[in-house]
């Protein structure tokens, strides 16, 4: 178990066991805020920060966390981390804080975080727990970004609009206007757009995986007749 290599951890977080596309965890905030890239990025970064801080802390403290008090301690650490991040965002990213609003405190309830604490951080050394959290968080954030990008392009014809809310006034120029606002596809910005978009992403991922399995199978049968490799993770 503790032999998980960094390479394996990276693959798991970004692709094989991606929280958004495979574990399907944290879907409520994922769908609710991804109306544009900047919102997705904001929640993504906040989630990465929370995951990394809580997983690393839990890994450091893992020898003190006895099985009986495991869950309350996880919840306590995660809640403290999220509250601290909420306060810091309120202080330093005021506008974004108001946009992401309720979804920052709701990170506490994102199952990815307690999931990684229980499944990984509590059993691994801090460097590995840190890397696992970073990769899982990045995997989640990438899904947020892509979904946000898809919905923003379709609904508003823009990308990176409102980037100044996150990166300051100088980032105003980042916004890309692809076509006129009025011609947008409104559905993409509404809740159904989130479901349809996520469904498409899932389909694309599964299709790529299936292609790979097939290619591998073809290669294998040519040499030896072993069983196909399953892509199911046992984590």
């Amino acid at each position: 178990m503790s032999q998980a290599s960094y390479r394996k951890i990276t693959q798991e977080g970004l692709w094989n066991n991606n929280p958004g596309l495979v574990q399907l965890l944290g879907l409520c905030p994922l769908m609710a805020v991804t109306t544009n890239v900047v919102n997705g990025l904001g929640l993504g970064l906040a989630t990465i920060l929370t995951l990394v801080a809580s997983s690393t802390t839990i890994s450091f403290a893992r020898h003190f966390i006895t099985p009986e008090i495991r869950l309350p301690v996880f919840v306590l650490i995660i809640a403290a981390v999220v509250t601290a991040i909420e306060l810091l965002m309120h202080a330093f990213f005021f506008e974004l804080y108001h946009i992401l609003g309720i979804f920052i405190p709701l990170i506490v309830t994102n199952c990815i975080i307690i999931g990684r604490a229980e499944a990984f951080a509590a059993k691994h050394t801090p460097p590995k727990a840190f890397w696992d959290a970073l990769m899982m968080g990045t995997g989640f954030a990438l899904v947020l970004l892509i979904l946000g990008g898809m919905r923003e392009v379709l609904a508003n014809g823009t990308l990176f609009d409102h980037a100044h809310l996150m990166f300051g006034e100088s980032a105003r120029g980042l916004a890309i206007h692809l076509f006129e606002d009025d011609k947008g596809f409104l559905l993409a910005a509404l809740p159904p757009g989130a479901f349809i978009g996520l469904g498409l992403l899932l389909a694309i991922k599964n299709w790529i995986d299936a292609q790979q399995v097939q290619r591998r199978k073809a290669g294998k049968t040519a040499t030896t007749a072993t069983l196909p490799v399953t892509s199911v993770s046992t984590e």
């Binding site: 006895t66 008090i69 509250t83």
Partner: peptide
């Protein structure tokens, strides 16, 4: 006692961040 210790550390952390922000 362990749980209480964790709670105490959490409280101290949040109090510090709160004062700071």
């Amino acid at each position: 006692l362990l749980l209480a210790a964790f709670a105490l550390v959490g409280v101290l952390l949040l109090d510090t961040v709160n004062r700071y922000t």
